[in-house]
């Protein structure tokens, strides 16, 4: 247990943050490992930003402990803070300065020397595709460009750990995709990222995801793990000729790897959903089983990957009862 804590980049242990008589974050615990993209997902007001602020040291927890880079953020020295990058939820740079001047300000704020900053700023503006807009006032660029500028400003001092608070809120899907591409590139460079989002589909880009609601952590898992939790197991979709459906169901239901079969609504005739423990193991075996009956015309076989929106709704529905119980207890 001790060894695990030492390895963690960020460790939260039963962290609660109270404003007045309201717990904005309650009893949250997790470990974030170096080099991973850790997503925090949940509806607006669920405590994501407060949790990020607890990890960046802007807030001090009411109870519990926070450790970032092996230290309590409340005791961070300037040299510790130089290892953090932070992109706030809103654009907080200066609209009356141009892109380049904002970058220079951010670089100065982190004490980046004049000799280093020029090359670094050029690289970053290229990275966030703002090179052409370097002389444009930040107030005159689009919302998406402002976000990218804010990201570049957060990276100007080459931080080891980057906190990104809802980077994609309110921007178009194409730009959202580009943001995640950039996060993946940063990860490839060896950076660690903590990213909050309201868009549950974006959890697919994360290595691990924390799901929060009403200030509470519901679960932490990988995107695949979340899917499995929602569906209860792996699911395969198989479609055969409509006339062969009965035979196919008979064969599959007898197979030892099949946990259950379901006929989906609004699906083409001959379709079925097959529940298995491990899709990768079961898939070739089930195809072989169906092929053992030459009368069955198998038309489509694959793993069922429902949208994360659906997975999230399913998870929420599943977790609804215990949360309500806790609320009533509180």
């Amino acid at each position: 247990m001790q060894a695990h804590a030492v390895q963690s980049l960020i460790q939260l242990q039963q962290v609660t943050k109270r404003f007045g008589d309201r717990d904005v974050v309650r009893d949250v615990s997790w470990n974030i490992q170096p080099g991973e993209i850790f997503g925090i997902v949940g509806p607006s007001g669920c405590g994501k930003t407060t949790t990020v602020r607890l990890m960046t040291g802007v807030y001090i927890p009411t109870s519990g402990s926070v450790s970032v880079l092996g230290k309590d953020p409340a005791t961070f020295k300037a040299s510790d803070r130089e290892q953090l990058g932070y992109m706030p939820q809103l654009f907080v740079l200066y609209p009356n300065l141009n892109v380049l001047e904002n970058m220079r300000f951010a670089a100065s704020m982190y004490g980046v020397s004049l000799t280093k900053r020029r090359k670094r700023i050029d690289e970053l503006l290229d990275f966030v595709e703002l090179d052409q807009a370097r002389k444009t006032l930040a107030g005159n660029i689009s919302g998406g460009m402002q976000r990218r500028l804010q990201l570049a400003a957060a990276l100007v001092h080459e931080p080891e750990l980057l906190f990104v608070d809802e980077p994609t809120a309110g921007i178009d899907p194409v730009l959202r995709g580009r943001f995640w591409d950039q996060f993946q590139e940063l990860k490839a460079m060896g950076k660690s990222l903590v990213v909050t989002t309201q868009y549950v589909n974006e959890v697919a880009y994360c290595d691990r995801v924390a799901v929060m609601r009403d200030g509470q952590l519901l679960l932490v898992d990988t995107p695949d793990g979340l899917r499995r939790r929602a569906l209860g197991s792996d699911v395969l979709t198989i479609r055969v000729d409509a006339e062969d459906l009965r035979n196919a169901v008979r064969i599959l239901s007898r197979h030892q790897l099949v946990l259950g079969i379901e006929r989906p609504h609004n699906a083409p005739l001959g379709s079925m959903m097959v529940y298995v423990d491990d899709a990768s193991t079961a898939l070739p075996e089930l195809i072989a089983a169906l092929n053992s009956d030459p009368t069955i015309d198998t038309r489509q076989v694959g793993e069922y990957n429902p949208p994360f929106d659906d997975i999230f709704i399913t998870l929420m529905e599943r977790l609804e009862t215990p949360v309500s119980k806790e609320h009533s207890n509180a």
């Binding site: 960046t56 802007v58 803070r81 932070y86 706030p88 907080v92 982190y110 004490g111």
Partner: peptide, 14 residues
């Protein structure tokens, strides 16, 4: 008002 103070708080700036 602009929110830059939040950015300053995270940064090494005092």
């Amino acid at each position: 008002q602009q929110g830059t103070l939040e950015m300053f708080r995270v940064s090494p700036l005092s």
